[in-house]
Amino acid sequence: MASKIEQLIEDMVLDILTDEYELVDVEYVKEGSLKFLRIYIDKGGEMSLDDCQKLSRIISERLDEVDPIEENYMLEISSPGLDRHLKKEKDFTREKGKEVELKLFKAIEGVKEFEGTLLGLNENNEIEVEVNDQIMKFPKKEVAVIRLAIKI
């Protein structure tokens, strides 16, 4: 569940982005003594460094105008990467049929990590994955992380 700051930033960024870009995720996190505002944006899988720099300038200017975060933080604009995390319903729809890696908070029969083909997110908010020719259902709230698998 997104924090109030993350939701506020998401709404602001959605107002700024043109149709060629997709807002993937917003994270406001503390790492050590520093706070980071990370905004993940995609452009049809072809996000470039120039895109990140351009959007960083635009979003930074808007953040300075609106000033929604009182404390100091580092702004990072990034592509979600090849191993993008799946969080939202649209992520599960878009990536259906692709190979994923899934890690659970609590092990099932001693196993916490699974890899297989994403079948989607069902109406019970369960992530369905085909693992070794078996369809497995994982309640989304019990999944620590699910991301696209990188095959070499």
Rank of each mutant, 00 (worst) to 15 (best):
L82A: 09
P80N: 04
N124L: 14
D11T: 13
I152F: 15
G110I: 02
Q7S: 13
Y28K: 14
K54I: 04
G97T: 14
K4W: 12
K106H: 14
V24N: 05
A144G: 01
T117Q: 03
V111L: 03
G120H: 06
H85W: 05
A144Q: 13
L14W: 02
E130L: 07
K96M: 09
F138Q: 12
D42N: 03
S48V: 09
G120L: 07
Y28C: 07
G81N: 06
F36P: 01
S79A: 10
L102G: 02
E95F: 14
E46M: 03
L37Y: 08
F138T: 01
N122W: 05
D67F: 12
P139H: 12
K35C: 10
I59D: 00
K103D: 11
F138V: 00
S48R: 14
N124P: 03
L55W: 01
S56F: 04
E61Y: 02
D11G: 07
T93Y: 03
D51A: 12
M47R: 02
D51E: 07
L55D: 01
V145R: 13
L82N: 11
Q7C: 07
L82T: 09
F105Q: 00
E109Y: 09
Y40D: 11
L23D: 02
E113Y: 03
Y40K: 15
K4P: 09
Y40I: 01
T93W: 10
K54V: 03
K54T: 14
E6K: 05
K4Q: 15
G97R: 05
E46D: 13
E22R: 05
I9Q: 02
Q53K: 09
E113L: 00
Y40L: 15
I152H: 14
L86I: 12
L118D: 11
E113H: 01
Y73L: 02
G45N: 00
S33P: 06
K106S: 08
S60K: 00
D42P: 00
L82C: 04
E31M: 13
V13Y: 00
K88Q: 11
L17S: 03
T93C: 12
A2F: 08
L8R: 14
P80C: 01
A149L: 09
E113W: 05
C52M: 11
L8E: 15
I58T: 06
E109Q: 10
K90M: 07
M47Q: 09
E95K: 01
H85F: 08
D91G: 12
K106N: 13
K141I: 12
V131D: 10
L118S: 06
E115F: 11
G116Q: 03
S60C: 07
K43G: 10
A144P: 10
S60Y: 00
